[in-house]
Design a protein around this nucleic acid. Sequence first.
DNA 1: TTAAAAAAGCAACATTGTTGCAAATCTATT
DNA 2: AATAGATTTGCAACAATGTTGCTTTTTTAA
Lengths: 138, 138
Amino acid sequence: MDTDIREILKRSQLSVTASREKILHLFLEEAGALAHGDIEKKAGEKFDRVTVYRTLQTFVEKGIIHTIPTVDNSIRYALCKDNCAEGHHHDHHIHFVCSNCKNTYCLDDIVTPDIKLPKGYSSSHIEVVVEGVCKSCS
Amino acid sequence: MDTDIREILKRSQLSVTASREKILHLFLEEAGALAHGDIEKKAGEKFDRVTVYRTLQTFVEKGIIHTIPTVDNSIRYALCKDNCAEGHHHDHHIHFVCSNCKNTYCLDDIVTPDIKLPKGYSSSHIEVVVEGVCKSCS
DNA sequence: TTAAAAAAGCAACATTGTTGCAAATCTATT
DNA sequence: AATAGATTTGCAACAATGTTGCTTTTTTAA
């Protein structure tokens, strides 16, 4: 696992540092998505808030994680499974928010549907967030 | 228009106050969605920040407006067109974010598609946000 | 018009996110 | 393995955003 983490970082041309290893580790062992706050809590008192912000930003830029839209005011992040290129996230899967356990999951096998837009509109990206009860809670 | 506004408020069992009239007016004359910040700016210096927060919260509870999921960290609100009951938003339309003008629109005529979920998952609500170029910008 | 209820405004605070800069760490090279 | 240069971290200070309790003002219903 530690080797994996270093591999991922190096592949993204990032230097291997304690905070990056720790945060990436959190994503790898976590099934669902993580918000900034979750990461601060799970990482303990080890890292500065600023470092967490900057690390997440870097990971998004490098295509290691992607953001998930939410209705509340919290950006959530999850691992990119299908090799997103630097700056070009092309995740076409949908996201699932469990109304019971409040976790957010990437349903990697479910592809976003095509949407017919009115005349004059063109689409470059589609986000689908489904709310309901997840596998573990049902 | 002013009569409309009072009507909407009364129908929702809300007392008619200056701030509620003003904020509702902003939504009625605005084609797209509004974030909290937009409302503060458009309302001028007239109202306290706290009043704006509380008014938006009340409007959501009463089904006058609904929230729109975003990838950045800003809750956006738009008018509910189809009579949402108190506490029960049943808007099934999709949302469109223009990558050029940055406006968010409700595409009221486009219904959210059905999504086939994996075994064990059940869905209660689906949110679709399409990013692209809007009518006015294309 | 007036009494009761509701909302607004104020102040103080909590949380979240940002920026500049010095100290520490990492990488590549010798 | 040691070192120089580049990168990252942590700190401090700040800015923006959101929340709560309480008093004053406004609204509603009688």
